[in-house]
Design a protein around this nucleic acid. Structure first.
Lengths: 339, 339
DNA sequence: TTGAAAGCGATACCAC
DNA sequence: GTGGTATCGCTTTCAA
């Protein structure tokens, strides 16, 4: 193994000088810098992470707590992880993956063992049992999602409340008076997952404000469930002309279900989907969507984390404004047949 | 921060004793053990990962190199990462996420900085440019996928060659004589991705052996592309009765495309999908599938890695046998109309 | 602008 | 069965 001493010897300087060349924490004469950098390259020196962590109290590792269920909005999670990983590297950090189901104790372990410098936590629940643990930790923490009581932790997420409202507003502006929401798997609501709850809230409030008749219909991801959901929906209210789908997995089955029921999109029914932009083009009809900016959120989460590590201590809550893109799946409702 | 000395003091023993209680590397009297363990719990002691790594040359971290493109078989990647993470924890290891596009230099860095003890590499290409780097590393490496020349590295994967053959064999056994393969995005082939190439090979060989007329049709993941692909396919050979789909993303669009062309599955055309078992039920017709056992592969990859870390040095190549599950999407072809 | 040396918190060897 | 302590490779303070 090549150590800092090897480099120092090769360059004819002291180890501390090598360290300073690397960290830039004090000025180095151009000549010395050149010599040292040459030695580093020649020897292929990489500082030992453990030694560095021990001496500096910094690991340059960020822990990311991810929900790795197969049922969830897989591609959103992937996009998020990808962007977090990329952003982390841009800040010279590595990413440690922690699965949500390791529970709160794992977070303690990561923090206390100084495996990572900070934590980013996905899939936050409204009243998340991990919160007390995270608060007690002496490490910066950023939540992706917003619990009811953030307790001084920083949060970042799409403004799902505004997103829910935006969907209703869009349909309302087009003239729809009876709309329905098909949200995530009931399990997601039961856990009190932050984003689902907030979206639902925004949806309901905006509908009330506009006096739009709004119902919600539960649905899991399976083909069967999607069709059952549609049946239930049109039984409960045959007059629905606008459908909001906040359920990636069910989207294909729901769309083909509509087709099978001879409901054309958007002529007979308008559809707004809440999903990553990349999915908008995956279907027969270009979908009007509220984008889930997973990439942006990931980057912001890392950026906030780095700020905290840099000494910025006041917590903040960043809610990204939703962006609704009109495509081909929404249109004004057909005029009621004159009775 | 609570250190091993704090624990030692609290327990009235030497730090080394605490260390040995933790590692079990020498026998400890029951009484001492009890006292020490109590102190550990009471103080909430967690050994400092950096210090441990420095002293022991072991980080207890496994690096996982993942392709984080949105285009790829997202859910397979997710399943894999999830199972690797879980398996790693069962071996008391943490998982460091490295994105493929950080390139070979990142692998050097991880290894040389002793950030991780071993590497697991996904999305291996037939002639992967990372191979030389990996071989030169002095750290255990397990490839998920099989390059043309593994160069002494251990590999684990589904036996995609056998999988390709199994699909053809299944259709052949049912009596199909003209089949087609819709594989992954062309980009995947262009990169020479190991699994795609091997599957294609197995497909072609088995078809040749059975004298089955077999064609391949390229297709990306989009809705458009899927329909174009179907058009091209039936133009090139209207007599196709069996379709093998090795492209998760395109699957929904392809199935709805068949329906739109009034081709019933399986009466008019049989479909075999290569995908995780969990996707088999996502569609109108229960799909006959060759399962991609991402979970099993992940667990095996970790297990192999741990064996290497345990001193087992001889490389091995593990190919999991494919499992084809017959569901409702395959049936014998209709008898040719008598001409 | 640079060097010397004291830690950082474990592990594991050498004693007893 | 237990204790003392050198050691791992780096950072950072103190001195020059």
């Amino acid at each position: 193994m090549v150590t800092i001493n090897d480099v120092a010897d090769a360059a004819g300087v002291a180890p501390s000088t090598v360290s300073y060349v690397l960290s830039g924490k004090r000025s180095i004469s151009p000549r010395t810098r050149r010599v040292v950098e040459t030695a580093i390259r020649k020897l292929g020196y990489h500082p030992h992470a453990g030694a560095r962590a021990l001496a500096s109290n910094r690991t340059n590792v960020l822990a990311l707590v991810v929900p790795l269920r197969a049922d969830l909005n897989v591609s959103v999670v992937m996009e998020f992880v990808a962007s977090a990983a990329t952003a982390a590297r841009e800040h010279d950090q590595d990413l440690l993956l922690v699965t949500k189901n390791e529970g709160p104790a794992a977070l303690q372990r990561i923090a206390s063992s100084a495996i990572a410098d900070a934590l980013m936590v996905m899939d936050v629940e409204v009243s998340d049992s991990r919160l007390p643990v995270l608060v007690a930790l002496d490490r910066p923490t950023v939540l992706i999602g917003v619990p009811d009581y953030p307790a001084g932790l920083s949060c970042v997420d799409l403004d799902f409340t505004a997103a829910g409202a935006a969907c209703v507003a869009h349909l309302g502006d087009l003239g729809h008076r009876r709309v329905a929401l098909i949200g995530p798997t009931p399990a997601v609501y039961q856990r009190g997952t932050s984003y689902a709850t907030r979206f639902l809230h925004g949806f309901a409030e905006e509908a009330k404000r506009r006096e739009i008749h709004a119902i919600t219909q539960e649905c899991t991801g399976s083909y069967e469930a999607s069709h059952t959901a549609l049946d239930a929906l049109f039984t409960r209210d045959p007059g629905i002309t606008g459908l909001i789908v906040h359920n990636e997995a069910a989207l294909p089955a729901l769309l083909s279900g509509l087709r099978q029921r001879n409901l054309r999109v958007p002529e007979d029914i308008s559809v707004v989907a809440v999903c990553p932009d990349s999915m908008a083009g995956q279907h027969a009809t270009g979908l009007t969507t509220v984008a889930i900016p997973a990439e942006e959120i990931g980057a912001q989460a890392v950026e906030m984390t780095m700020r905290h590590l840099g000494g910025h201590t006041t917590p903040e809550i960043r809610l990204l404004s939703p962006r609704l893109t009109t495509r081909d799946s929404t249109a004004p409702p057909r005029p009621e047949p004159v009775s």
